[in-house]
Design a protein around this nucleic acid. Structure first.
Length: 505
RNA sequence: GAGCCGGUAGCUCAGUCGGUAGAGCAACGGCCUUUUAAGCCGUGGGUCCCGGGUUCGACUCCCGGCCGGCUCACCA
């Protein structure tokens, strides 16, 4: 290691880049000079775990980011950290040798990635520690780390530089570890329940399957506009036509709408479809899924705190009919909402505080009124069932009431977590519903659905009786993590660019 | 898109009723071989978000803008 002899390196200089303090890049040359050839043999969590079972002065080789550094003359204490744990290291001059010790003091900084080799022991205070025999500088950190006990609080920095959030804030690591676990457990549960995981197009010639404004893009070679999908629904039902008994897809949907604490322009959904199920089967299945998530992700704890409410996720969930809830809150019955003159309904909506009611269609009015009076009550998990048909162009007519469909939404903490129905599998009826959507579109609802004629054709080949459901993964993660912003559970949430490039025309 | 609030050192924050700024941590120079928010002595560090206006003088007041947060509107 001749590097310390080089006179041209001034290890402790700093410079500024765009006004930010950065350590001298002279240190960068060290990265190539002192990289170990051997990857670490183990992780910090593994070391701690095995030591608990079999405590002995074992030789370990492990790497991590230096997050604490306490030099004390001829010895140094520090902590290295990886995603899952933190481990103390103890460097003694007489053990690593004079030259190495000098190198460490001069060139190793807080924030660097280092690899250490040494024996495990416990200090006087009982903390598991590596007595370092050798330390390798694996990568330099040119910026000072955030403050060690407040971490990064500035939410803007936390979202833009998520890597810093993950380094400095243990709560952030916890949330995203939980999200990984959530995805893994959902997949495990679905596969164990006989579902096939599939992937369907995110670039679609027709954006359908939900009511939302799409993002538009263009394919140069085919010279056609394409939409980023707002939902995978119609493709997944085509797969049921094709013979899949049960399918699920976990993936991104894209909706060109506002950004707030419960909406990100791209978000993760799971949709699943099961032949020969109806919405009653879906409710039972959803409850089983939640029980599985309580047993695994939440480690048996069924209560979460969300927006100041204690919410119990343990099934079974409350069930309430859509129009029963509306009647309870407004005193008006189904016939009023579905058959009263539209002017009367608009007047009623305006009284309830619905804005621009005079421009809305009946379907929109009912939807708005429900959001105004119904949803605020729904804190504990609730299946709201039997939606009006005019709000649900892809759902099958209710077996007992032609005004309704066999549909439910699962609402928790005032958030729509799931949406499900017995699927409409009558091609003629589906065609009519699409036509009605086109009418809605002409009446000013730019989120009404598009006609998809190939989907109609698929239904003509025979869609078995089918139940289908979508679950919003981000919102579910918010609930399980107990955080009130969707940005807290999305690693890189949508943000405006930090600074505009200068000199652009 | 509208309203309210915010942007000061790398980080967390204080402050200036208008006279160009401080603390702790981090950094840098010393001392220190069981510390862990290590300790002790010393040092440096700021386009106070950007642009314009008022003023002898603006980080502070006024106007405009950028970015973010919250609430509302739209959506899931």
């Amino acid at each position: 290691m001749a590097i310390t002899d080089r006179g041209d390196i001034k290890p402790n200089e700093t410079y500024t880049f765009k006004g930010k303090l950065v350590r001298h890049e002279g240190k960068l040359t060290l990265m190539d000079a002192d990289i170990t050839e051997e990857p670490p043999e183990t992780t910090i969590a593994e070391i701690k775990h095995t030591y608990d079972f079999d405590p002995k002065r074992e030789e370990v080789a492990v790497a991590g980011r230096l997050v604490a550094w306490r030099p004390m003359g001829k010895a140094i204490f520090g902590h290295i950290q990886d995603l899952l744990g933190k481990l103390q290291i103890y460097i003694r001059k007489d053990l690593v040798g004079e030259e190495k010790f000098k190198f460490i003091k001069e060139f190793v900084d807080l924030g660097d990635i280092v690899g250490v080799k040494g024996k495990l022991f416990r200090t006087n205070t009982g903390e598991l520690t590596v007595e370092v025999e050798d330390l390798q500088l694996l990568s330099k950190c040119l910026h000072p780390l955030p403050e060690k006990w407040h971490g990064i609080k500035d939410v803007e920095v936390r979202y833009r530089q998520r890597y810093l959030d993950l380094i400095a804030n243990p709560q952030a690591r916890q949330i995203f570890l939980m999200r990984s676990r959530l995805l893994a457990e959902i997949r495990r549960f679905m596969v164990d329940s006989g579902f096939f995981e599939v992937e369907t197009p995110t670039l679609q010639p027709i954006a359908s399957g939900a009511n939302a404004r799409p993002f538009v893009t263009h394919h140069n070679y085919l010279d056609m506009d394409l939409y980023l999908r707002i939902a995978p629904e119609l493709y997944l039902k085509r797969l049921i036509v094709g013979g899949y008994p049960k399918v699920f897809e976990i993936g991104k949907n894209f909706r060109n709408e506002g950004v707030d604490t419960t909406h990100n322009p791209e978000f993760t959904m799971m949709e699943f479809y099961a032949a020969y199920w109806d919405y009653n089967d879906l409710m039972k299945f959803t409850e089983k899924l939640f029980q599985h998530l309580i047993d695994t992700v939440l480690e048996g704890k069924s209560e979460v705190t969300f927006e100041g409410h204690r919410i119990n996720l343990k099934p079974p969930f409350r069930v309430v009919r859509y129009f029963d809830l509306l009647k309870e809150k407004t005193g008006k019955d189904k016939d009023f909402f579905l058959r009263a003159p539209i002017e009367e309904l608009r007047k009623f909506a305006t009284e309830l505080g619905v804005k621009k009611a005079e421009t809305l269609t009946r379907a929109k009015l009912i939807d708005k009124i429900f959001e105004k009076v119904g949803e605020p009550e729904l804190i504990q998990p609730t299946f709201v069932i039997d939606f009006p048909k005019i709000l649900s162009p892809l759902a099958k007519e209710h077996r007992e009431d032609p005004d309704l469909v066999e549909r439910f939404e699962l609402i928790i903490g005032q958030m729509e977590i799931g949406n499900a129905y017995t699927e409409l599998n009558d091609p003629k009826d589906q065609y009519q519903r699409f036509l009605e959507q086109l009418k809605e579109k002409q009446a000013g609802d730019d989120e009404a659905m598009e006609m998809d004629t190939d989907f109609i054709r698929a239904l003509e080949y025979g869609l078995p009786p089918t139940g289908g459901e979508g679950i919003g993964i981000d919102r579910l993660a918010m609930l399980l993590a107990g955080v009130n912003s969707i940005r807290e559970v999305i690693l890189f949430p949508a943000m405006r660019p930090e600074e505009k490039e200068k000199g652009e025309g």
